[in-house]
């Protein structure tokens, strides 16, 4: 028996196929979910993929956050279901208030597309247990609105509770506070990050490495052992 991991397709999602493939390569069963369908089809975890859902109209993630599928995901995430938001998915998670803070336009106003070195600051989440604490990984980064921000009190709380999961190394690509690349909620089941682990699971494409695979093997182990 393996775990069922859903990947939502919103209008404007780009990386849903790569996320489904990453789930499959890790040995879990990928399940395609549709934004207008409230039913999660008995998945054990959900990935919100990258892209430009609803054209990033209003704010990135702001319209997707009110889609029918998100109603169910928000409710179940609050109940402990693991959710990973990648790039646009991270933006959807902050707009949903499942994660604190907000995403803003990159401080230099340019689209970023590069291989980005990260440090795994917290391997205690549902999505990072296969990494060593402090492990450095190379993951593609590509976004326009990647500047994570929150008020100082929220940042201090995130830092104090070890909820900064990933930090940018070798330069901050978008002006995010404290070089934050990804965070988790207090329970550790909801994780959001700007870089794209689903593009780093096969040596023939992307970074040429497989540093992103750990996200998908982590969740599989967590669900199968649960």
């Amino acid at each position: 028996m393996t775990a069922r991991v859903g990947v939502v397709t919103f209008p404007g999602s780009l990386d849903d196929r790569d996320a489904l493939r990453a789930v499959k390569l890790a040995g879990a069963e990928p399940v395609a979910l549709w934004h207008r369908d409230k039913d999660l089809h008995q998945v054990d975890a959900v990935v919100l993929p990258g892209g430009f859902s609803y054209g990033d109209y209003l704010r990135a993630g702001a319209i997707s956050r009110f889609s029918p599928v998100m109603e169910t995901i928000i409710e179940q995430a609050r109940g402990g279901m693991p959710v990973l938001g990648i790039c646009n998915g991270f933006q959807v998670l902050t707009e949903s208030h499942l994660l604190p803070g907000a995403m803003l336009r990159n401080n230099h106003l340019h689209f970023v597309c590069k291989d980005q070195k990260l440090r795994v600051e917290n391997n205690g989440t549902a999505w990072t247990s296969d990494y060593a604490p402090g492990q450095e990984i190379m993951i593609p980064l590509k976004n326009m609105d990647g500047r994570f921000t929150a008020d100082r009190r929220t940042i201090d709380e995130l830092e104090a509770e070890g909820r900064v999961v990933f930090r940018y190394l070798d330069g901050n690509p978008n002006g995010s506070i404290d070089d934050i690349a990804g965070i988790t909620n207090a329970a550790g089941n909801v994780v959001g990050l700007m870089p794209h682990p689903e593009h780093a699971v096969d040596p023939i494409v992307g970074t040429g490495g497989t540093d992103g695979t750990g996200f998908f093997t982590s969740i599989l182990k967590r669900l199968v052992n649960a």
Binding site: L58, A62, F66, E95, A102
Partner: peptide
């Protein structure tokens, strides 16, 4: 709830 994100 929608037009503005009151976090920012």
């Amino acid at each position: 709830t929608f037009l503005a994100n009151t976090v920012i």
